[in-house]
Amino acid sequence: MGLISPAARDALQTWLNQQHALKGAAENTILAYQGDVTDFLAFITLHKGDAQGLGALARITVSDMRSWMAQTRSTGVGPRSMARKLSAVKAFYRWLAEREGFEPTAVLSTRSPKFQKKLPRPLAVDAAKALIDCVEIQSETPWVSARDVAVLTLLWGCGLRISEALALKGQDAPLPEVLRITGKGGKERVVPVIPAARHAINAYLAACPYPQEKDAPLFRAIRGGALNPRAISQVMANARMQLGLPATATPHAMRHSFATHLLDAGGDLRAIQELLGHASLSTTQAYTAVDTARLMEVYNRAHPKASG
């Protein structure tokens, strides 16, 4: 942050602290915000020719914003990442304008580049089962196969994020019938653990050569350290190639599948939102690929007025 004026640097740090303390933003989110806004402030400094104090930042024009976006895109940043960077800059400017008493229209009116949101593609029930069966015979080391099956069963059977599954410690096993998970932004949720997930973890622990230590990771890498998410992604990549499944069959797709298969079995969307730990119902709708026709079908079947 050497190019940025001390006043701008202090303002950014204060804003980041507030995002963390008041809004419970996750560490990764804070780091992304810091990088995105720092890059913007550094560009403005070079663009204008000197360190920009808060007064100068209040005088940013639409032309300045276009120059920043053009320069950022020229470095190979795609529309989705550009939209994220602009969103971070806008959030910072909203706060800064309120604190400093200026009108942030030039920044806030800047349009985000259009990009197609990729709808998650859940796996069919048969495909999810086939993937787990295939993963079971991937490794020549039996305990590693048992470990990979246990991780994927947790993602599909409990709707965990890969980071949440790999954050489990030795003290969490044997898994109870209900698990407390701390998700994004420190948000806690309660997740029922299906018997298949408990059995898979017990089978892994029985085969694992490393002792189950209270504070050590539950899922161990081949040399005994913490398991890296990339290892699970690679295992799934190998399995999906063997089964002829699309590239969308990733570890995260197992979490999508958890939600969709629950919904298909008659689960309630709000309850699924709670199980996934989503702050917004719209995120859950995207996960479960719910369309209006499907919602109307559920409504017409379930609402007392709909039938008569």
Rank of each mutant, 00 (worst) to 15 (best):
T292R: 12
V89N: 02
P174K: 14
S307T: 12
S233E: 12
L16A: 01
Q34W: 08
L57I: 11
A124V: 09
E213L: 13
G186L: 00
Q116I: 10
P104E: 03
H261M: 08
Y93D: 02
G186I: 03
T75Q: 13
E27I: 00
N202C: 02
R73M: 07
A58C: 10
I162F: 02
N238M: 12
R180S: 12
A302T: 14
K23M: 09
P104N: 12
A306W: 08
T75V: 09
L12D: 08
A306I: 11
V178F: 09
V290H: 02
R59S: 13
M296W: 06
A165W: 02
A124M: 10
I137G: 05
T141V: 11
I44V: 14
D268H: 08
T260K: 15
V235S: 08
A56L: 12
I44H: 09
T105F: 13
L41D: 01
R121E: 12
Y299D: 02
I181L: 05
K114Q: 09
H303K: 11
L175E: 06
A221Y: 00
F40W: 15
P6Y: 07
S63V: 13
H256F: 10
Y93L: 00
P104G: 08
Y287L: 03
Y299I: 04
W95Q: 10
F43A: 03
E136L: 05
L22E: 13
T182M: 07
A42D: 14
F40G: 07
R223K: 14
K114D: 01
V89K: 05
L245R: 04
S145Y: 03
I137L: 11
Q52W: 06
A216E: 12
R73V: 07
A130S: 15
G76Y: 04
A56T: 10
A128P: 03
P122D: 07
T61D: 12
G186T: 00
P195D: 13
A42Q: 14
V235P: 04
A11E: 11
A289H: 05
E98P: 01
D50G: 10
L218M: 08
P113D: 06
V149K: 06
A97L: 10
H47F: 09
T72K: 13
A293Q: 15
A56G: 12
V89D: 03
G49V: 10
W15F: 15
A106M: 12
L3A: 13
G244D: 06
K114G: 07
A88C: 15
R223T: 05
P176K: 05
Y299Q: 03
T260F: 00
Y93N: 11
V62N: 11
L108K: 08
L41Q: 06
P209H: 02
A26S: 13
R240D: 06
T284I: 00
G224N: 10
L57V: 04
P217W: 09
L179F: 00
G78F: 02
T38C: 09
D133A: 14
A237V: 07
G308D: 14
A253R: 02
R73N: 03
G53K: 11
Q273P: 03
A197E: 05
W68M: 05
T14F: 11
T45I: 05
A128T: 02
R111L: 15
T260L: 10
